[in-house]
């Protein structure tokens, strides 16, 4: 049996229905444990105080914001090449989730930046890149909403996602070029002096797993909803024809 079996909507509905609780419950558990551990059971940072704890939301959200776009790119390619409707709908379902993750990363970044940099917003390359990524999400979602025919919408948004991915990467480099930035380096990188202690790393990993599972659960749920909505539409169209 090949993996493409699950591109069949019926099979997908059956599998995703069975899978959903197995993703959603661990997601809730990982987030609950990870966030409580991170917020209340870790010591304050000697320089950044308790502010640093926003990392347990900021970093996983930023990670999923980028991964969601990457997932949309892959599912868009699958739609363009193999024309599996579930794939196109999964891309559509992932977009708002990714957009919200981007927004969370931006807002938590601002909250973190206020005491650190003394300002709510700094045109730091990373924050700016995320703001631009958010604009890409908005455009992508708006195009889905604007095109009435579902197949046309799937095709156009897939092409936009492909082109947008290239330009998103270009923008990332352009923004780096444009401003070297105040943002601290990648939080998990092992640069000397910036090394993160295990007491932070473990709950952070747990939160990242939690966010990833949450993302999967939300996308599964939303894809199921999209499939049902399409099914209703098709049934109504059939009734009109009959």
């Amino acid at each position: 049996m090949s993996i493409w079996e699950y591109a069949n909507p019926v099979k997908f509905m059956r599998l995703s229905g069975a899978l959903l609780p197995w993703v959603a419950i661990p997601a809730a558990a990982a987030l609950a444990v990870g966030l409580v551990w991170g917020f209340f059971l870790t010591p304050d940072d000697f320089r950044q105080g308790s502010t640093v704890k926003i990392i347990f939301v900021h970093v996983p959200a930023a990670l999923m914001a980028v991964n969601a776009w990457f997932m949309m790119l892959v599912t868009s390619l699958i739609w363009l090449i193999r024309r599996h409707h579930v794939s196109a709908l999964a891309a559509r379902a992932a977009a708002p989730v990714g957009a919200v993750m981007t927004l969370i990363a931006l807002i938590t970044g601002a909250v973190w930046g206020q005491p650190m940099w003394g300002t709510w917003w700094a045109w730091d390359p990373r924050l700016t890149s995320f703001l631009i990524l958010f604009l890409f999400y908005l455009g992508y979602i708006a195009l889905w909403e604007a095109v009435p025919d579902p197949e046309t919408a799937a095709d156009l948004t897939s092409v936009l996602c492909l082109v947008g991915s290239v330009f998103a990467v270009l923008s990332r480099y352009a923004v780096n070029f444009w401003n070297q930035g105040l943002h601290q380096g990648a939080s998990l990188s092992v640069a000397p002096g910036e090394r993160m202690d295990m007491t932070y790393k473990l709950p952070l990993y747990l939160c990242m797993v939690g966010f990833a599972l949450l993302f999967v659960a939300l996308v599964l749920l939303r894809t199921r909803t999209e499939i049902r909505a399409r099914r209703i539409k098709a049934l109504l169209a059939r009734e009109r024809m009959a």
């Binding site: 909507p9 019926v10 509905m13 059956r14 024309r83 579902p150 098709a234």
Partner: peptide, 25 residues
């Protein structure tokens, strides 16, 4: 004659969900 409405609706839903639309929806 009404077949082949839309890939998502018909391509995979030939037999409906688990024995008919009412069952699943």
């Amino acid at each position: 004659t009404g077949g082949g409405f839309d890939g998502i609706a018909d391509g995979g839903f030939g037999g409906g969900f688990d024995g008919g639309p009412a069952g699943a929806f």
